[in-house]
Design a protein around this nucleic acid. Sequence first.
RNA 1: GCGCCCAUGGCUCAGCUGGAUAGAGCGUCAGACUACGAAUCUGAAUGUCGGAGGUUCGAAUCCUCCUGGGCGCGCCA
Length: 554
Amino acid sequence: MKRILVALLERAIRAGVEAGLLPATAPPSIEVELTKDPGHGDYASNVAMILASQVRKDPREIAGVLSQRIEDPEGFLEKIEIAGPGFMNFFIREGVLNRFLADVERESERYGSSDLGKGGRVQVEFVSANPTGPLHIGHARGAVVGDVMANILAAAGYRVFREYYINDTGNQMNNLGLSVFLRYRELLGEAAEFPEGCYRGDYIRDLAAELLKRDGKRYLDMDAEEAIRLFTDYAGSAILGGIKDDLRAFGVVFDLYFSERELYREEGVGMLLRALQDKGFIYREGDALWFRTTAFGDEKDRVVIRQNGAPTYFAADIAYHRNKFLRGFETVIDIWGADHHGYIPRMSAAVQALGYEKEALKVILVQLVNLLREGKPVAMSTRSGEFVTLREVVDEVGKDAARYNFLMRRSDSHLDFDLEVAKRQSNENPVYYVQYAHARICSIIRMAAERGIEMPAFGQADPGLLKLPEEIDLIKAITRFPEVVEGAARTLEPHRLTFYLNDLAAGFHSYYNKNKVISDDAVLTAARLFLVKSVLTVLKNTLKMLGVSAPEKM
RNA sequence: GCGCCCAUGGCUCAGCUGGAUAGAGCGUCAGACUACGAAUCUGAAUGUCGGAGGUUCGAAUCCUCCUGGGCGCGCCA
């Protein structure tokens, strides 16, 4: 409906310009919104005021010109009122909105999808935690945000690819191998000092024990460096395997786990740097190579090759991002912890230096999660091994509650996650509110079937009977869904879905408590069943995008 | 010190990129099951949108300054 009104307004503006009643300025982007107050009609637009400010005329006069020029051959509109400082309020004729329920029936599980992305290829890279330990609660939020963002983009018509970057080289991996090796020696009775930077979690000891059981004590006789390398490989792949399992249990599946080691094959990083050097972005100062990121607005230049000849993390990351674009992605979305925000300018600089548009790289920052139990903070520290793992959270509160909770705030704001509240089956827990609406509708449909009432198709029901204010509101909410998905895709804000879902469920619950769907009036029953079925479809589609189950009973 | 983000009822947060009287949930108080599922609903109270200026028909939203918080400022990843 919104789109139709925008089109009508566009045509009216053009007509006004042609008639010489409006000057031919750049047409503003036309906005139409649902009204909050029924006295303002169903939809309202502020175009007249925008136009007025451009041409210095009375907005109400312009609104008058526009509303006279609006052609409405299909008779959507009851009337247009000009109100306040120059709003145009559209009153939709009774029975018109109901027609849009046919869209829901026709598109069914695809309702809400659009072709906004026009098949453009987008890569979403997320989680990307070092395989030095199991995923913890902090990673969980990024995992859900990335996964759902990918779902939203797919629904909005993009071809989406999910990727996990495995940071499997460098000091941290060495420390992992060393940590396991030290535990191994400890198991064999050798005293071990744990240097700074080592990992102390129980899983380290478990890995050491596995190696001991499998291969005995032969690593003791080996050159220590060689042994640590083997331990690193073993521990890294074992931990990565665990990470994959945990993610799968959380409903997060990647198209590709990309190993950083790939980048070093065939001198990939070196060649890239030479290419950048040719473009003049690399210079030598002292024994190090620097990247001139300041050319693109970074506050200082950054080292890519250290004095000791080793590439920095940044160097590898440049190569990785180039690799992404070479694979044909037009847009690359990275999901990072908010503490990495300072890294954005240099990554953006790198992308531009490689010759890509600044907008080709988008970064979603995800803030930290405060893990609570009954309102009290749970202590966390990776190094010491005291942390609540993703696996434990999923086991304790369940996938649905965990995922939903992580989407209840915009991702760049802090989130309190209370384990006790999340598993409580009460009104404090919003997942159930939505799932309950779904289950309730399923229950109504079951009841109808038991009474031998057939589920009507759109053509069989008389949607014109749906004229209660709550029914109109529900229909409006349903027609809003595709816009919500588009909005979430455009702004990269997955939390919009949970807010929408909550609204829709509230609308339904309220309606349900006031009105009977199934009654003696067969025709009315058919119309209402159709409405409720439409709500069900939207609930189901949204929950699916969130990766949350839609139970038929609970 | 410099840079980025944030500040909205008692608490936790939305606010559709400048619109009409700032909205939810939780908590509090008062109500609703002989009704398709009460994990639900209905109603009530609570706000100088951190403060001060500015931009304009119009500001929670944009600009400047101040206060208070978070984060970043490695040849770490």
